[in-house]
Amino acid sequence: MATLGFLLTLGPFQFENWDTAASLAEAALDKGHEVRMFLYLDGVYNPVKLQTFPDLDVMPKDRFAALASRGAKIIACGICVNARGLEKGKDYVEGVKVGGLPDFAEIVAESDSLITL
């Protein structure tokens, strides 16, 4: 078993990096690996639980919530969260934490491989 780390810097609804990140994280969990993810910049929009969008069957936030419920550790950059008016992540899905770049430094340390998307 290994640990796979992610840095996700783009939000949902404009770019598809979130889908790639979620798909890879799901595949890693399926194989029994650990997943760590740091949401940076617009990446912090991914776990907002108020998302609705008619063209998507599954909302990004539900994919991230499912990852967290399966044991993925997901941490959002607090400065980025507050810059976007997300108020310390009060509207985040369960399991996603708000932290800071020191958490990302720890993810870098813990991860056997790191993917940036």
């Binding site: 800071g100 770049l101 020191p102 990302f104 430094a105 720890e106 870098v108 340390a109």
Partner: peptide, 9 residues
């Protein structure tokens, strides 16, 4: 941020 953590990357 990465250089400043306790991990001293």
């Amino acid at each position: 941020g990465v250089t400043s953590g306790i991990d001293e990357h």
